[in-house]
Design a protein around this nucleic acid. Structure first.
Lengths: 233, 233
DNA sequence: TCCGGTTACAGTCAGCATGACCACAACCCG
DNA sequence: CGGGTTGTGGTCATGCTGACTGTAACCGGA
């Protein structure tokens, strides 16, 4: 944004990488795809595409999810995470990558193919977890920490569940993302006393397989920031 | 980060824009420069440069400050803010800009020239304030809000003052950035009880022109996050 | 039909952090 | 010396939180 007399030369390529998180079976999971490059066989990467000349960054993020994982979730939460511009982050040359964080209740089409898969976040970085390509082992922790952090001071947890939801379901989101157990009674008191977090809906939800009292249904409230915040234990 | 078979073509230009904030005379101020373009006469812009092929993003941020405002402050806090990629944000063509937030106690060389100047943040957006070029009227509010927000949960306020400092100086930073008055006694209790925020230094600071009891000196602590947070009133 | 198990919901209580004050200390200036 | 100013230490009431207890409402099996 300056040097207007500079010639219009190509300085470096721009790409978008998307870290899509979801909660399945009470576990936080991350979407990864297999790179096409033969040299990267056996590794996994975040779905990402080059930015086209006539395309906004958000559009590239949506296109990455659609083309590489078949996910078209227009209601999914999508926000920019950070831009990674290390000189050597891509062996093919200088590529600046704008990373995105995406949250969704259930990826539209279950992407459990051999090209796109959901991985337990708890297993990332361990021997059983996938090996990440490029510098994605730096992007992924940033994305997870952003999600964990934003659960504290924003109503983002509601982006992981479908409406209507119960407070038990919402609590299981917090427990899966944070990896801790929360007291049900205190969680309820906190959520319902935070203005605009959730709104009561009609009817009751049937109990789960183990029985239990039916729970009230709720919908997302209008608040985007939580006051006061829901702090991690 | 994908489509490895795609040719190495120029998709779009990449630039860095820096929003440098400082506190002078108890007022939060922002550094702006005059664009070279004749069509933008009378407007002001964030200092920014194109990213070179062999240059990291952080390096471009430092170079922008040095070349356009003569500021070489290696100890200044510098962090990435967000990347702006709107198709029409630059009339000269598609330019993706990685915005940075910089905080410094005193800009190395006082940049009060006709090309670079500090503006009161309170006046931005008003009739007396400068007219901003490009989409910088979108970047600047994001930068200010980031700074205000990070004062809450990080020890970033210490980046605005030089060591050693008094708690009165640190409090004036909070008051200038947030635009509110804080109770001196409660502020002190909060700061000294937050582990790692500040550490006591040697000696006392002389009182200001109006007199007053000498204040203890402090240095930055080792903590980067504040637990619990210092919330805005 | 009763009974244990499970989940949802409601309430109590102590501890901690906070905001609103008050009091004193230590300097400057006139 | 005495008022003004700033720094520092304290009290007190309030509100949020974690830990905990108790009741409601459902399931499944004996």
């Amino acid at each position: 944004m300056s040097a207007p007399t500079a010639p219009r030369v190509a300085s470096c390529a721009v790409a978008v990488d998307v870290a899509l998180l979801t909660v399945r079976n009470d576990r936080l999971q991350l979407l990864l795809v297999q790179p096409d490059a033969a040299a990267l066989r056996g590794t996994w990467a975040l779905p990402g595409r080059r930015v086209r000349d006539d395309e906004g960054l958000d559009d590239t993020a949506h296109r990455s999810l659609a083309e590489l994982a078949g996910i078209t979730a227009p209601e999914a939460h999508l926000e920019q995470l950070r831009t990674y511009g290390e000189l050597t982050r891509d062996p093919r040359g200088r590529v600046v990558s704008v990373a995105y964080l995406a949250l969704t209740p259930t990826p539209g089409d279950p992407p459990d193919t051999d090209r796109a898969q959901l991985f337990d976040v708890a297993r990332l970085g361990t021997a059983e977890g996938p090996t990440l390509a490029y510098d994605h082992d730096r992007i992924v922790p940033d994305a997870i920490e952003r999600a964990r952090s934003k659960l504290e001071y924003s109503a983002l947890a509601t982006a992981f569940v479908e409406e209507p939801f119960t407070l038990g379901e919402l609590r299981s989101i917090y427990e899966a993302v944070w990896g801790v157990a929360l007291d049900p009674a205190n969680f309820r008191r906190k959520v319902v006393s935070t203005p605009g977090f959730v709104e009561e809906a009609e009817g009751l939800a049937p109990p789960g397989p183990g029985g239990g009292r039916p729970a009230k249904r709720y919908r997302r409230g209008h608040a985007r920031r939580l006051h006061p915040a829901m702090l991690r234990p």
